[in-house]
Simulated scan of single mutants.
Amino acid sequence: MPSLDNSNESTNIDIDEVEEDSDEEPLHSSIPPREIPSWNTTRRPLSEAQQLKFRTYLDEELMRINGKYIHRLNEPSRGYASLKELIDDLEKVVDLVWYSITTTTNAPDTNSHTSYQTYYLLRIADDFVDYIEGYESDPSPVEMIQFVQKLDAIFTRLLDPQAPTRLTRTDAVRLTSIAERTRIQIAKSVVRGYEMEISQIYSSVLSQP
């Protein structure tokens, strides 16, 4: 995994440090959302070389995840046995991207508030709609809903006009489409018992003006 530290001492990002651990199994009637870290008050800049290395890593990880998703049909031993396994890998990438957004800057010499990381978050959210459809017979509803809740919380922060990093208007339009398609697909995939959670899929994003 690439380092996101440009100091003399290289510090590798440990996903476990930015994830909230929980041994409790959520109940059907109330699925608690997973917390996400807040903005770091001292965000450090990344060099172009570091950004390129990080983007290469993200591309490779997302290709690996997509490959395992495809292999689930023709080579099950090389693919994901369940949507939960896929979400576990995908969530690590999301956590890493969000960590990089909240702790680093990408263009210290410009006034830009957009970043390449938002592209990856939108790509993950878009791909996830297809992944849900591929596991309609085994939807892993709790993990699925918690993952989308996390995406909803992240995108809501990126839609804040005062956020250090934020989505462009074009990205916001694309996100609305992704959110609506996700809600429809989850409603088709999830068994009875999660009506309240399904009605709140991307509720924060879709309530933005």
Results as ranks from 00 to 15, higher is better:
126 D>G: 07
191 V>K: 15
58 L>Q: 08
156 T>D: 14
19 E>Q: 11
2 P>N: 04
40 N>G: 13
77 S>W: 07
63 M>A: 14
193 G>C: 06
38 S>G: 12
197 E>S: 15
4 L>C: 05
180 E>V: 12
206 L>P: 05
160 D>A: 00
160 D>L: 03
52 L>R: 14
199 S>C: 10
48 E>W: 10
37 P>C: 04
152 D>W: 09
9 E>V: 04
162 Q>Y: 01
59 D>L: 09
102 T>V: 14
97 V>A: 08
205 V>Y: 06
165 T>F: 00
35 E>I: 11
49 A>W: 09
83 L>E: 12
9 E>L: 10
55 R>T: 09
51 Q>R: 01
41 T>W: 06
102 T>N: 09
168 T>L: 04
125 A>V: 08
12 N>T: 10
185 Q>Y: 05
7 S>A: 06
33 P>C: 03
42 T>V: 12
131 Y>Q: 08
141 P>L: 07
172 A>T: 15
21 D>W: 00
188 K>A: 08
119 Y>V: 11
94 V>W: 02
127 D>V: 07
27 L>G: 06
128 F>Y: 15
47 S>W: 06
175 L>Q: 05
63 M>V: 13
23 D>N: 03
190 V>Q: 00
171 D>V: 04
137 S>A: 11
56 T>P: 04
112 S>G: 04
144 M>W: 03
145 I>Y: 10
127 D>Q: 13
190 V>H: 00
113 H>P: 00
118 T>N: 11
4 L>S: 05
50 Q>G: 09
180 E>A: 06
47 S>D: 02
81 A>V: 09
116 Y>V: 03
168 T>R: 02
177 S>L: 07
49 A>R: 12
148 V>I: 14
172 A>D: 12
74 N>C: 09
159 L>W: 02
4 L>Y: 01
90 L>D: 04
23 D>S: 03
20 E>W: 01
71 H>G: 00
101 I>G: 03
205 V>W: 05
135 Y>L: 00
40 N>D: 15
44 R>M: 08
103 T>S: 02
88 D>L: 03
38 S>P: 06
176 T>Q: 15
71 H>V: 01
50 Q>T: 13
45 P>N: 05
119 Y>Q: 11
85 E>S: 15
185 Q>F: 06
40 N>K: 11
8 N>F: 10
182 T>I: 09
128 F>A: 08
180 E>C: 03
73 L>Y: 08
71 H>N: 12
141 P>A: 01
147 F>G: 11
152 D>V: 06
7 S>N: 08
137 S>K: 12
76 P>K: 13
144 M>Y: 05
106 N>C: 07
137 S>N: 08
171 D>P: 00
134 G>T: 12
150 K>Y: 06
78 R>C: 13
129 V>R: 08
17 E>S: 07
65 I>R: 14
5 D>M: 02
134 G>R: 02
205 V>C: 05
133 E>H: 08
32 P>M: 05
137 S>V: 13
60 E>Y: 06
113 H>W: 00
114 T>E: 08
130 D>F: 12
112 S>A: 11
134 G>C: 11
69 Y>L: 13
153 A>L: 13
154 I>L: 12
209 P>C: 02
149 Q>A: 03
154 I>V: 15
66 N>K: 15
128 F>I: 07
12 N>K: 04
77 S>N: 08
122 L>K: 02
